[in-house]
Design a protein around this nucleic acid. Sequence first.
DNA 1: GTAATATATAACCAGATTTATATGTACTCA
DNA 2: TGAGTACATATAAATCTGGTTATATATTAC
Lengths: 178, 178
Amino acid sequence: MSLPHAILGILGYMPMTGYDLKTQAFDKSIAHFWSAVLPQIYRELERIEEKGWATSSIEIQHDRPNRRVYSITDAGRAEFARWLHEFQPPPAHREAFLIQLFFAAQLRSDEIVALLEGQLAARQEQRARFAALESAFDGDHPREEALARLTLDLGERITETYIAWLEDAIALVKALPS
Amino acid sequence: MSLPHAILGILGYMPMTGYDLKTQAFDKSIAHFWSAVLPQIYRELERIEEKGWATSSIEIQHDRPNRRVYSITDAGRAEFARWLHEFQPPPAHREAFLIQLFFAAQLRSDEIVALLEGQLAARQEQRARFAALESAFDGDHPREEALARLTLDLGERITETYIAWLEDAIALVKALPS
DNA sequence: GTAATATATAACCAGATTTATATGTACTCA
DNA sequence: TGAGTACATATAAATCTGGTTATATATTAC
């Protein structure tokens, strides 16, 4: 329900191919709150075109395969503007590791600690990835930049919350009577 | 991939019907980290039985419709124990509201603030729901209880993180030049 | 010659959600 | 008394969304 609008949001800035959307937009700026794989993006672009929210044209290239470039239409802009005001309910939290933890009483404490440490390592990597993104701001569009920074900031805060919780959880489980 | 294991985890404590799983387990203790709707649970129970991880039998009732009660098998316990040690990668963060915020530069600041306030209200309700759950601990199984509390605690911390971030974001957007 | 990069798409599968349907009891409101 | 509604219980069908795998072509780099 939101992927088409993420795509419209990007096309609002400039026309793009599916490949560009994936490599330049999804994998770079917005991966931390919405990800999509290539076939998904291409399929969605077809649907967007069917609905008249974008048009596409082939751009001939001689050094590389031809590209199909999508441009947003007025109808697409209108749809996006409408959607921008719609309330989006917070997504359900669904995390397999928490099922494990919830039912981990049958494990020895050191096994539970191992689970927690695996998660801690993953979250620390995530923190490092956020730190690497930090630098990529151009400074030319302060309003856009402030909002982009906000979404990044949330991702970082959540990651820190996980790390602190995992550290506390490890200490707690170590102190648990078996 | 995890729903069957959540079900096995519950059946490990006692035999249950699909309806019980939904109303007693999913909607109560574990809704804050894994949710499922009724048809999904019934379908999954069929698959679990096909794989030999549980058996079912009809329990005749006279005041209400008959119930199909599922019991975990040794193979089911073995599968669950095996799965308990498997690393579960953190799920991708996918939140429609963050797409809105990221692309909200075209909105007036007061419109952005309205979006943020909608999310704030939703997260405050979530906090209230967590507070209501707090009390439901029996105290008979300290190990199980400690782990259940841990999962609840994470949910609460994440909710607080959102609330603090939303409050900061509102202040920031209000101060933004248009 | 092999790998990597750029580009596009088809086919399929898995998981989650919505909607509908069925049946029996109990309760409520007019 | 009868009509509607809620609760307990189970399942089917359809749909949507996301993800995996494979395939195809062209160029450049190693």
